[in-house]
Write a protein that binds this DNA or RNA. Structure first.
Lengths: 321, 321
DNA sequence: TACATCATTTTGATCGTTCAAACTCACGGA
DNA sequence: TCCGTGAGTTTGAACGATCAAAATGATGTA
């Protein structure tokens, strides 16, 4: 039923050669206007669509961007919203998103290597960059086009394009918000030192306090769970804290059981649901910039080397009041 | 650098013809064992990977499954976990997942039509089936292989394979749980009648009460928001309800502000975080069955026509106690 | 010895597109 | 008249794989 419509069918109907049809679609400027119209009409009539496989065979370009779909331990993350934005942005640029899974960095590299031979994605988008990330170096060595959501942490910068959200600016804004509303003893509930993201978020809180000449002693590290978040909040309030800035919504949720003056990070659905104030990441824009940088590089367009976007502080009131 | 390794390179190194290499990879049983070993060694040495585009050109099969990535209004859904499971299951069967976005049914049909001409996915996985769903009929008319996560609701059944979770069985189990712990006035907070999923979940609650000869008058419809969930809970408890079965975690979260004896649906991260009891869907298994049915049909293997899986009741205690 | 049989391997064609080069033809200048 | 120029179009080849059919060669049988 309905055999595949090829470029030859269009050419026949329009009374031109295959190449002219190809030109109408790829380099319209070299074709006479009248011919162009005739070909486009034929394309429309037959419902012709260029075969991605055949095009890829000839040009070597797949119009595919590969992205790893992350596993979410506690589900309180923002990956899905970002992925949706990425898919949309990719579509606007004529690309499609191809998913893959991986268990760790090495496994991801293996998968990318396999993907590279089979589907030949034009580009890769990595997420969750971290210290000593082996993936960026591997990709850079092979000259594979990629962009990361997450800046290069530590000494592993290979000069690749990246997009990230300014965590420090966010926690600094949150801390200033508390300062402005009269708080003086503001604590921070973070992760164990060593994670780029966590240290960055701590830095913003610390910076805001130091600027006011205040002490930064109300600082606790946790494993990121709600339970430890609550415990940390209990201890910090015990030590005099009246407000808490948190590294994530998960720990903030725990802290919320201790005091209302808490700000989380990521503005996850959980935060919205329970009325937790939080720092929201501009995920759609992050995704759009990722695609822009990647496709820009793919088409030889000059692009910025990176983008650092600001989170937005969302203040919520207790829904029970 | 590192020009593409083709089947011809492998053939040359192994001292055989292209076709023999192809046979080793696709029909190993026709090749002599000794030759097979030699070819496999050459494949290994050169790091050969079959080109998906070239294979597709010849065979017409892309090894791609297309899936729409949903937008999440309140973010309290399970799509991302299901998608991860789907990607994993697809990989195990030698398929990759290609994403696309759509704004509504018609737009999705357009996109599928475009995709069909360009990337020629071997199959489609639809989610969120509903009454008068135009998508299934459209796909069935064109004989495109697909499976849905969600049964055919209403009269639009075109006899396609589907996988779904037995919502009624879930709410029935939740209701029985409350009955077993002594409750007699158990309410239901649902959605407006008309949605297949919502009506199904209401039916399970109703069935459990009727089996005990109890009245099913404690039944309210909402728009699905936390706010209306809370309002409904207030009214139902006012009318004597001591326990509430809810159509979703979102409304359950609202109800939780009124009473502890609440069960939600979907077991979202929010539920886990706030200690809300809920009905969890076996998403990984749903995803695996979707892939199994679809790839089974694609390879001519006989497959079941559908699968109805049971949710699991997760009872949680108040984390604050 | 001649021939049919079978297992194994090879050859040639093909999928649909685009690249590179060649062709056509109207036009203008010498 | 002849030729160069350039806009517009066409032709042939190639991308890398697999299908279908043909070739090869060892084995058994009449």
């Amino acid at each position: 039923m309905a055999a595949k419509v090829t470029i030859a069918d269009v050419a026949r109907l329009a009374g031109v050669s295959r190449q002219t049809v190809s030109n109408v679609l790829n380099s319209p400027e070299v074709v006479k206007e009248e011919t162009r119209q005739r070909v486009l009409a034929a394309v429309e009539t037959l419902g012709y669509r260029v075969s991605a496989a055949a095009r890829q065979m000839r040009t070597g370009r797949s119009r595919l961007l590969a992205v790893r779909i992350e596993t979410t331990e506690d589900g309180m993350n923002v990956f899905d919203r970002w992925l949706h934005g990425l898919t949309e942005a990719a579509e606007r640029s004529g690309y499609r998103v191809l998913l893959y899974t991986a268990t760790d960095d090495e496994n991801e590299i293996d998968t990318i290597d396999r993907l590279r031979g089979e589907f030949e994605p034009d580009g890769y988008v990595l997420t969750s960059t971290h210290h000593d990330d082996p993936r960026t170096a591997w990709l850079a060595e092979r000259d594979l086009p990629f962009v990361t959501f997450g800046r290069p942490w530590g000494a592993t910068d290979v000069g690749h394009p990246w997009v990230d959200v300014d965590g420090a600016a966010g926690t600094e804004a949150a801390t200033r918000h508390f300062l402005a509303t009269g708080h003086r003893r503001i604590g921070f509930i973070g992760w164990e030192p060593g994670s780029g993201v966590g240290d960055d978020r701590r830095a913003g809180w610390s910076r805001a306090l130091s600027a006011e000449g205040l002490d930064t002693d109300l600082d606790l590290a946790t494993d990121g769970t709600l339970t430890q978040g609550r415990a940390a909040a209990l201890e910090l309030t015990g030590r005099g804290a009246t407000a808490l800035v948190c590294v994530s919504d998960a720990v903030a949720l725990g802290a919320l059981q201790v005091t209302r003056d808490v700000v989380g990070f990521d503005d996850t659905p959980v935060a919205a649901a329970v009325g937790l104030s939080s720092l929201g990441q501009p995920l759609a824009e992050v995704a759009a910039r990722c695609v822009e940088m990647l496709t820009g590089r793919l088409s030889g367009r000059p692009t910025e080397s990176h983008a650092l976007l600001s989170p937005t502080l969302v203040i919520r009131k207790d829904p029970r009041s």
